[in-house]
């Protein structure tokens, strides 16, 4: 199928982009990787009058690691995070191979995915677990918005029509800890959106105490979610089987999943429980191996 007719503009700078967004407002849609937007346009579920292709704006596809954060350009393609390892952010490369399929990962971008705000998208869960923020920019202002404030509703974010998501900022883990991360996705086939997605990350000190932790959930509500209560229970404790079980149970109660063709509410909650449990158990095991090799 073919999209409805639209005008196309490809700005060369951020300033030009802001100008266009201001000028065209709601009628314009930003085209990043296009892997969600173009299919919707082909099915004529979306019909913007103007596409602003930011593909020619420089520096939007870079990744910059500093001691206190990893700054990921909005146009960073999923495949980059699949192939490039950022050692202090293992959850990113654990998540990337689960996104869509390999061909879609070659085009789709992290910023585009977040701005699309599908509640089942994988980056949302992972970046919430990592307590990431996004940089939103327009002519008028630059603002840093924590990801948990960014997602508003299904396909709806805090982005104003004149704003562009330029960068994702992931804070660095504590320096004196080992950091681990795993992403679990229940999908019905490659390319499927998550039935349930669970991102688990934790930093463990020398004696195995959790110093930092995050749990993100995909497809467990109208927006990607952070299981904050569950993650908080981990802080300051070792990963005992009892604690893992308790945390998993608490995580399963965070979120508000709907019963649908992909499973009942009860099923989805149980999947969160199972995956959080598996993720934390795996982290504990990896920590033991790492600790032994250090010793």
């Amino acid at each position: 199928m073919f999209p409805s007719a639209f005008s196309y503009v490809a700005p060369n700078t951020l300033d030009e982009t802001y100008e266009l967004l201001e000028q065209y407002g709601d009628d314009a849609k930003v085209l990043a990787g296009g892997q969600s937007l173009l299919p919707m346009m082909k099915l004529r579920l979306a019909a913007p009058g103007m596409l602003v292709d930011i593909g020619q704006v420089p520096h939007l596809a870079t990744q910059h690691e500093s001691p206190d954060a990893l700054r990921i350009g909005a146009l960073t393609r999923h495949a980059i995070l699949d192939s490039k390892q950022f050692d202090r952010y293992p959850l990113l490369s654990q998540t990337a191979p689960w996104i869509a399929d390999p061909l879609v990962r070659n085009r789709g971008t992290m910023g585009g995915s977040l701005a699309h705000a599908d509640p089942a998208a994988d980056w949302g869960a992972t970046l919430l677990a990592l307590k990431a923020s996004v940089q939103l920019a327009s002519h008028e202002r630059q603002r840093l918005v924590a990801l948990h404030d960014f997602f508003v509703d299904v396909y709806t974010t805090a982005l104003e029509p004149q704003e562009l998501l330029t960068e994702i900022i992931v804070p660095a883990p504590l320096a004196d800890s080992l950091v681990f991360g795993h992403y679990f996705k229940l999908e019905r086939k490659v390319g499927d959106f998550a039935v349930v997605g669970v991102a688990v990350t934790a930093s463990l000190t020398d004696d195995g105490t959790v110093s930092e932790a995050g749990i993100g959930l995909a497809a467990m509500g109208s927006i990607p979610l952070a299981a904050k209560k569950a993650a908080a229970l981990l802080i300051g404790h070792r990963l005992t089987p009892e604690l893992i079980k308790e945390v998993a149970q608490v995580a399963a109660q965070e979120g508000d999943p709907q019963s649908d063709r992909r499973g009942s509410e009860e099923y989805k909650r149980s999947m969160v429980r199972v995956y959080v449990q598996r993720g934390l158990a795996q982290i504990h095991q990896e920590w033991q191996v790492a600790n032994q090799s250090i010793a």
């Binding site: 085209l31 082909k42 596409l51 292709d53 495949a79 879609v104 070659n106 085009r107």
Partner: peptide
């Protein structure tokens, strides 16, 4: 297909395999 699912349209763009039905 029309949902970027089947990959019959795969081409290399700047050396990277992409679904050409989902690129303008």
């Amino acid at each position: 297909c029309d949902t970027t699912s089947c990959g019959a349209c795969t081409v290399l763009m700047d050396g990277v395999p992409v679904k050409s039905c989902t690129v303008l």
